[in-house]
């Protein structure tokens, strides 16, 4: 498949919830496509339905109606375990609260998705090390989350999302718990993964600054797409970092 193929195709997506007796229409017929290699930011106020959309895109939830194709697979017809397999093979998750397993080393945290595959132990370790290296955490393999700073923890989480060689990475408020400098560091990693490895990135955020690093912005309001615009010249996080006043890089402090 060429670079322009849609990795995500959403058509007339509707999601209703029952709140007691009253049905709530969270998503009211949404259609869009995300191309392979896109870096998309999704913004919108609370209650706009972006979390619900994220859950559906992440195969954690199923739409009430409409179709969702991920990498050519129609997700709507899959059962619980088949969805788990899709998540395992095609999607990497990054959360606001990192969601690392406590009292578990960085390597083992990164290995977690591979635990649910047939990958042999030696290969699991090798791939986890590689992923940690890719996010700049070489040398911290045996650290537990409590021994790492917030930014480092989020990088462990990114390494975990990478380890399965996913088609897309879904990041839900990935910088929400981090200071602005660390946020830019995380965005720099995302941009590198997007440009160098061609991984499709989808970032949900409240922060307009974070959105400026993507090459496509989608705005939500009241369960509908309000704005979908391409950014011709996204900001470069790496260059922004270099221009920031000289501050010791975080890992030096933590070490």
């Amino acid at each position: 498949m060429s670079d322009t193929t849609a990795v995500i195709e959403v058509k007339d997506l509707v999601k209703d919830y029952k709140l007691g007796q009253v049905p709530v229409h969270v998503l009211k017929g949404i259609s869009f496509e995300i191309q392979r290699g896109d870096f998309v930011s999704i913004m919108g106020p609370s209650g706009s339905g972006k979390s619900t959309l994220m859950n559906i895109l992440g195969c954690l939830d199923k739409p009430t109606s409409g179709s969702y194709r991920l990498d050519g697979i129609s997700v709507g017809e899959l059962n619980r375990d088949q969805l788990a397999e899709i998540r395992n093979k095609k999607i990497g998750f990054v959360f606001q609260q990192f969601n690392l397993l406590a009292r578990t080393s960085a390597t083992e945290n990164v290995e977690l998705p591979l635990m649910y595959t047939d990958t042999p132990a030696s290969e699991r370790r090798e791939r986890a090390m590689k992923a940690l290296f890719a996010v700049g955490l070489a040398g911290r393999e045996d650290h537990q989350p409590s021994q790492l700073s917030g930014g480092q923890q989020q990088r462990v989480a990114i390494a975990r999302s990478l380890v399965n060689n996913p088609k897309i990475i879904l990041a839900d408020e990935p910088t929400g718990a981090l200071d602005s400098r660390t946020s830019i560091e995380i965005m720099a990693i995302f941009q590198r993964l997007n440009r160098e490895d061609g991984i499709t990135m989808i970032v949900v955020t409240h922060d307009p600054d974070v959105a400026t690093y993507s090459n496509r912005n989608i705005h939500f309001k009241d369960g509908k797409l309000q704005l979908d615009e391409r950014v011709a010249q996204p900001r470069d996080a790496k260059r922004d970092l270099e221009q920031l006043p000289a501050e010791k890089p975080e890992e030096v402090i933590a070490a």
């Binding site: 954690l60 619980r80 375990d81 788990a84 998540r87 977690l112 998705p113 635990m115 649910y116």
Partner: peptide, 16 residues
């Protein structure tokens, strides 16, 4: 609960 949710998100099946 959160750990379970995470494991499910990264691909743990029901029987796992």
């Amino acid at each position: 609960t959160r750990e379970i949710g995470l494991r499910q998100a990264v691909g743990a099946k029901t029987r796992d």
